[in-house]
């Protein structure tokens, strides 16, 4: 992505400027958010092709809404709302949407355990091993969607609890619970990796 972000304008100003016909403002805006949004999408669906399609749809929605955009809230909130809604649509269309309890652990531990752990605690095997990343993604994928969504929104977008709550349509306390559950499960699932990671440090 060759676009540099030398523009000091806020996201909202850039979006308004793009709505007035300045494509360079969109390039700056896209450069700021492209990776985070992409990770948010790809860690939800796991499939690269599907993630590309959803990612493109999110940004096309941004492009279409350029003339009606009003900066009543943070641009990031609006952007991740679009991404969240697109994911929900995708889940509905593919029949993947299911109501899961925040206590529904399922076979998360078993699934994570199925991912091969690096054989040694050597740094090259802990840090550089591709399997580590796969195990992390597997652990994320095994989280209930609501918990994963809350966790990824917190990790990638930097939204506040209130913003995440408004975006997902639940209360702030629910978001907190989801986050706590998600973190606890990931800790447990990745305990071996955590130890290796700590040893490496």
């Amino acid at each position: 992505m060759p676009v540099s972000d030398a523009d000091e304008r806020s996201d909202e100003d850039l979006m308004v400027s793009y709505g007035r016909g300045r494509p360079d403002a969109f390039e700056t805006l896209y450069a700021r958010h492209r990776k985070a949004v992409y990770r948010y999408v790809v860690r939800h669906c796991g499939n690269g092709a599907t993630a590309d399609e959803l990612f493109q749809d999110v940004w096309m929605n941004v492009i279409r809404a350029r003339s009606t955009y009003t900066p009543t809230a943070r641009f990031a909130t609006w952007l991740y709302t679009l991404a969240h809604h697109r994911l929900v649509d995708h889940w509905r269309a593919s029949g993947l949407q299911k109501t899961m309890s925040i206590d529904a652990d399922g076979d998360v531990d078993d699934m994570i355990a199925a991912v091969p752990v690096p054989g040694a605690h050597t740094p090259e095997h802990v840090v550089g091993n591709r399997q580590l990343g796969e195990r992390l993604r597997a652990a994320l994928a095994c989280l209930p969607p609501e918990q994963r969504d809350a966790f990824l929104l917190q990790q990638e977008s930097g939204l506040s609890l209130a913003e995440i709550a408004a975006l997902t349509g639940v209360g702030v306390e629910t978001v907190k619970s989801r986050l706590r559950y998600a973190v606890a499960k990931l800790r447990a699932a990745l305990s071996e990796l955590r130890e290796a990671f700590n040893d490496e440090r």
Partner: peptide, 22 residues
């Protein structure tokens, strides 16, 4: 691209430009 919000610091989005989260 250091401006991109993919740097996983303590609170990645809170230090971003634009409106502050409350």
């Amino acid at each position: 691209m250091n401006a991109e919000r993919d740097d996983h610091d303590g609170n990645p989005g809170a230090s971003s430009r634009g409106l502050r989260s409350n």
